[in-house]
């Protein structure tokens, strides 16, 4: 499908049109940039990178899988239909990575429904929005969006990724634009890390880890969860909940009887990195990490796993 051209003068009108078709979500600059539900389209920014990723719209932090009353179960599925504007390629790729886990042998129906419902309008990074970005090293694919906005001064060129996207822009003039691949200053040089599992650098570099879990909370591909029942005060009913969990806590691997399989801080940290760079790739042939840099940006002590890996020698 051909790309289209939108004059920036028409940008707000276009956003208004989106808003009329569902719940519009887009980056808003407040004290920091956040993805928010939009009431006023003039609040939307195309600068910067929301610190918190999009995953909450596909599998919320606390989510009812089903409610129960006595022995009757009712499955809970997403109600809202989101139209998301301003997702960067790292965020869009993060969803493609999560698809492999959540739409695998046994699909997660909530996630599946949200993926089918939600419309994704990307925003191409002419310049990486953050100095921690290193997506150039992570093999992002130019796909996964319904539309992709590319800033070209006076205009946006809009790449079309789906029929649903095309329907939104088919009235606009066509364009032949092809965006440049994203270049990032920061790069992950060592991407083959199997040999780095036993390496003194883990202990040394991870000494300043506070095990607070901020990295996993902010990661666009971290969706590990806990499952528990939340009884209603009336006791004969309640809900089974999934809640985001984090491998950075000791309890994550604790089994009945009390044994913890990843006790040391550096083991927990290393597991996160190995999952993102090695284990997932072993299974699916691509990195789980999409190079968004949030885990570094949001780390209280600014532990930089990219630099740690780059510093390791075979």
């Amino acid at each position: 499908m051909r790309a289209r051209l939108l004059s920036k003068h028409e940008f707000h009108r276009f956003l208004e049109k989106l808003k009329s078709q569902g719940t519009l979500v887009a980056p808003v600059k407040e004290d920091i940039v956040r993805f928010k539900e939009i009431t006023d389209v003039s609040a939307i920014t195309t600068e910067g990178h929301p610190l918190f990723p999009l995953k909450k719209y596909f599998s919320p932090q606390k989510r009812k899988i089903f409610t129960y009353e006595n022995n009757n179960i009712e499955e809970v599925l997403p109600e809202k239909q989101y139209i998301m504007f301003g997702a960067r390629l790292c965020d869009i790729n993060a969803l493609l990575r999560l698809d492999k886990l959540f739409l695998g042998d046994i699909s997660d129906r909530y996630y599946q429904r949200a993926r089918a419902n939600n419309l994704i309008i990307g925003l191409h990074c002419e310049i990486p929005p953050n100095e921690m970005c290193f997506c150039e090293s992570m093999g992002l694919s130019d796909s996964g969006y319904d539309l992709l906005f590319c800033d070209a001064g006076e205009n946006f060129h809009i790449k079309v990724g789906s029929e649903r996207g095309n329907a939104l822009v088919q009235d606009l003039p066509e364009s032949d634009f092809q965006p440049e691949p994203i270049k990032t200053e920061k790069k992950l040089h060592n991407t083959e890390i199997a040999a780095f599992f036993e390496n003194d650098a883990w202990k040394k570099e991870v000494e300043k880890c506070l095990s607070c879990g901020a990295c996993t909370t902010l990661c666009p591909t971290c969706l590990c969860f806990d499952v528990y029942d939340d009884p209603d005060v009336e006791m004969n009913k309640g809900a089974r909940i999934t809640e985001w969990d984090s491998c950075q806590y000791e309890d994550f691997t604790k089994v009945a009887g009390g044994h913890v399989f990843r006790q040391a801080r550096e083991q927990r940290f290393r597991h996160r990195i190995f999952h993102k760079i090695q284990y997932y790739k072993d299974q699916f042939g691509e990195f789980m990490c999409t190079g968004c840099g949030r885990c570094i940006e949001g780390c209280p002590t600014k532990i930089d796993f990219v630099e740690i890996l780059n510093g390791m020698k075979q």
């Binding site: 610190l51 918190f52 932090q61 506070l210 879990g213 901020a214 909370t217 949001g298």
Partner: peptide, 26 residues
């Protein structure tokens, strides 16, 4: 068993440590 930091990040708050404040959340 989780930290204040984990939950505060979920609330999408502007990190107080980042703003130079004396926060014990982590």
């Amino acid at each position: 068993e989780k930290s204040i930091c984990h939950e505060c990040k979920l609330r999408e708050n502007h990190c107080l440590l980042e703003q130079g404040r004396e926060c014990y959340g982590p």
